[in-house]
């Protein structure tokens, strides 16, 4: 029983940390309509930068540093696609590739960093909660605080004029231009914020599992997209805060996760397409039958 409980708890913690990346994609993919393929690299970047700063003895600064690193990465992706004429998918892939080298450099020419004896936001929280009923849930407390902050920020932000402009940029760019808003600006701001959350997500995962390796972010974009699409299916008609919560619920870390996620992404994207095809095939069949062929 204990094993099951502790497994569930770990799964939930991991899932909720990844949920931050899902929220990032909620902003870039659902709102801004940009599929940001630099997510994997940016996640690792957040983990690496956060780990290095934490190891040097600044667990809180680690979070800030990771987010700033993420913002820079987002800025470069956005700059490539809005100012340098690079296709948005390609811009993400290129940045993702470049980040591989940068991440290894950040980790000091190593592909693995160990934080067993490092003070992290989690160990800080553990010390803080010692003796209270939440003692064993210290990880969860940190993660939930981060999530709540991000969700509150997003819900407020998306209702501001800038937030509206970012949503409209993904919805109808022509209309945004005719409202005298520069779509280059809205795209850059959107990607910068989204990547800050992706990096935060990576930073928290590294601190919680007390290690970083260069593969920590591999497949994150597919996993996050899968969560996002499932969340959308269930909560698409709800208001923004509810949708933001919806994306959190369906993370399920296990070693099959990446395969399952890939399948989910394919099904939810190609499902509607195949459905329309199927009805055509059916009609064709019915027609042929009627004519006695």
């Amino acid at each position: 029983m204990d094993v099951v409980l502790s497994l569930t708890q770990t799964a939930l913690e991991l899932g909720l940390i990844s949920a931050l990346t899902v929220l990032a994609l909620f902003l870039s993919y659902s709102m801004l309509n940009v599929c940001d393929l630099s997510t994997d690299g940016c996640f690792t970047l957040g983990a690496a930068v956060g780990a290095v700063v934490a190891i040097s003895g600044h667990p809180y600064l680690a979070i800030v540093a990771a987010m700033i690193a993420g913002m820079l990465s987002g800025l470069i992706t956005a700059f490539l696609q809005t100012k340098m004429g690079v296709d948005s998918l390609l811009a993400g892939i290129v940045v993702n590739t470049a980040l591989y080298s940068i991440n290894i450099a950040v980790m000091g020419n190593s592909s693995l960093l160990n934080m067993n004896k490092t003070e992290t936001v989690f160990t800080k929280m553990q010390a803080l909660l010692k003796g209270t009923f939440l003692e064993s849930q210290y990880k969860m407390v940190v993660i939930v605080i981060a999530l709540v902050l991000v969700i509150v920020f997003l819900s407020l932000f998306l209702e501001t004029r800038l937030g509206l402009a970012i949503r409209a940029t993904g919805n109808n760019p022509a209309m945004v231009k005719s409202s005298s808003i520069n779509t280059v600006f809205t795209t850059i701001v959107g990607l910068v914020i989204a990547n800050a959350f992706t990096a935060l997500s990576g930073c928290l995962l590294a601190q919680s599992q007390k290690s970083v390796n260069i593969d920590i972010g591999t497949g994150m974009v597919t996993i996050a997209l899968a969560s996002l699409l499932i969340g959308n299916t269930f909560f698409a008609k709800s208001s923004i805060p509810v949708r933001a919560i919806g994306v959190l619920r369906f993370n399920m870390p296990a070693y099959m996760l990446k395969l399952v996620s890939a399948v989910i992404v394919v099904i939810s994207i190609s499902g509607p397409y195949l459905k329309s095809k199927a009805s055509l095939v059916k009609r064709n069949y019915a027609l042929n039958k009627k004519e006695g062929n």
């Binding site: 209702e159 501001t160 004029r161 800038l162 509206l164 409209a168 109808n172 209309m175």
Partner: peptide, 25 residues
């Protein structure tokens, strides 16, 4: 072409009116 279909009437108008700062609601 002239409005964002996924946003509400009010949000579309707010965007067109464009009053206040970037962070105002």
């Amino acid at each position: 072409l002239g409005s964002a279909p996924g946003m509400t009437v009010e949000e579309n108008l707010a965007l067109a009116a464009g009053s206040g700062t970037w962070l105002s609601r």
